[in-house]
């Protein structure tokens, strides 16, 4: 069995450089690669293009990279939870490409699946479609959207094995599987790293073929953005 395990986050991020394009999994703060983000902050590289559905909050997730002005451009669908982001965007310090969430997901999937571009109805007739090819199919208008070309994808899974097979938990799955497929180098951090053979092959969400490096993550905070509860009666 091919072994994808690296010792720690330092080894996992070997080769990252300023100016690169990264994908980072997660929806809000759910399922984000916390260890990789911390390491990117520590490495201090900048001029980064980050593809991620959201931009974290002011003091957690990608917000940590924004604070240090390490990000040049964000490609996201929703950035409403981060004041510093909004400030940098409105002042022009940060370049931002906002794209529909389904288009973002499909562009990630297409990247890993060898599909250079595809047509989607999302955004037709809006500023998202400006400058893009459009075409009619069966009486409805569609917009041509392209795959990405990221150097690294940073992914968080619940369980993984030494061969790189991955299982996600709950809604922490979100963008992680497609981004795992899309990275030239896909770096996965897991809450629980087990030996190949310990995971039931029927239950694996992403096969190890898409993964270049996997490591046992640590110190997960898993911060909750909106703690909504039903009171105990």
């Amino acid at each position: 069995m091919i072994n994808k395990v690296v010792k720690n986050v330092h080894e996992a991020l070997e080769g990252v450089k300023s100016g690169m394009t990264f994908m980072l999994g997660g929806f809000g703060l759910c399922g984000i690669p916390e260890n990789a983000i911390t390491e990117l902050v520590d490495l201090g590289i900048d001029n980064l293009t980050c593809i991620s559905n959201n931009a974290g909050v002011d003091d957690f997730g990608l917000g940590l990279l924004l604070q240090k002005h390490q990000i040049k451009k964000m490609i996201s669908s929703y950035v409403g939870e981060n004041d510093e982001f909004e400030r940098q965007m409105l002042s022009g310090e940060l370049e931002v490409e906002l794209i529909p969430q389904g288009t973002l997901a499909e562009r990630c999937r297409a990247t890993g699946a060898g599909i250079p571009a595809f047509y989607t109805p999302a955004g037709f007739g809006t500023e998202v479609a400006e400058g893009k090819e459009t075409r009619e199919f069966n009486g409805k208008m569609y917009v041509l959207e392209h795959a990405f070309n990221p150097e690294f994808a940073f992914v968080k899974a619940w369980k993984g094995d030494t061969a790189g097979n991955l299982i996600f938990k709950g809604t922490a799955r979100n963008f992680n599987p497609m981004m795992a497929m899309a990275g030239k180098i896909t770096v996965v951090e897991v809450e629980e790293l087990v030996e190949a053979g310990e995971l039931d092959p029927n239950q694996i969400h992403i096969p190890g073929i898409f993964v270049q490096r996997i490591f046992q993550g640590k110190d997960y905070e898993k911060r909750i953005e909106q703690r909504t509860v039903t009171p105990k009666s």
Partner: peptide
């Protein structure tokens, strides 16, 4: 559960017969 939220980032639950999947 931090790993079970809705699109508004609120903590939610999943009903019997529910399912989970990726964004694509």
């Amino acid at each position: 559960d931090a790993d079970l939220i809705n699109a508004g980032k609120q903590t939610v639950t999943i009903l019997q017969g529910g399912s989970l999947f990726d964004s694509a």
